[in-house]
Amino acid sequence: MTSVTMPETGGPGDGSVILRCEGITKAFQGVHAVNGAAFDVVKGQVTALIGPNGAGKTTLVNILSGSMTCDRGHEFIGGTEVTNWPSHRIARLGLMRTFQLSRELGGLTVLENLLVAPHQQPGESLFNVFFRPRLVKRQERAYVERALDLLDTYGLYRLRDNRAGELSGGQKKLLEISRAVMVSPQVLLLDEPMAGVNPALIDRIGGYILDLQRSGVTVLMIEHNLNVVEQICDHVIVLAEGRTLATGRLSELRQNEQVVKAYLGEVIDAGTDR
């Protein structure tokens, strides 16, 4: 792995590491999808995870979020080792995620998609439902207010009573992000948030991500759109063949021959004197 100088913190973080992976490895029937990936994500930064198709980016995000277990390696969130913890425990530590192909809860309304997000709600206990209904109602109202605020911010307010399965692709992307934000996450993993959305919406999603960073959320996003990476990401991790190939600012990585060969290829060739 090539190490490139760590960038200065762009957001409100204190420069400490909030997410660390050490030697994460995952093989499927002998084929290594992730092969010793290791990197740090600094608190308060927007970090991009880039790499060619098949580099293991989504598998790695699945492992980091607990949707999949790893064969070897370690994962830490804020100093706590969470290697191979189940999804729900990792989520309760404050790491939320979105999916490469939007996975809305299609039978629920847009509003309900957000309402389901808060962890360990009082109303999820049947004891509270029957014997502490006022507590449940009060908490539910607070959730509804917050959810409506978020739907307003993310431009989905008018669709609040629609079933989520009826939304367009771009709207589903927004719904996924707003659903993850509903629980005020510490770390947000975004799997290709700009994929398949129109240019105007790409601008807006970029704005939302920077807003989240300003509010203290650490973002790790898989992204292929290098304009987006260049403009909103403080730090970039390049993954190739399941390994961390390099880390640093995109401008620095453009000069890295290994990165150019593995991922950037023709685009960089056109802009450099090789």
Binding site: D203, G207, N227, V229, Q231, I232, L264
Partner: peptide, 13 residues
């Protein structure tokens, strides 16, 4: 929320 102009140039590979 202020949009950022991310789409004025061609995207990467």
């Amino acid at each position: 929320t202020e949009p950022v102009a991310l789409t004025t140039e061609g995207s990467g590979p």
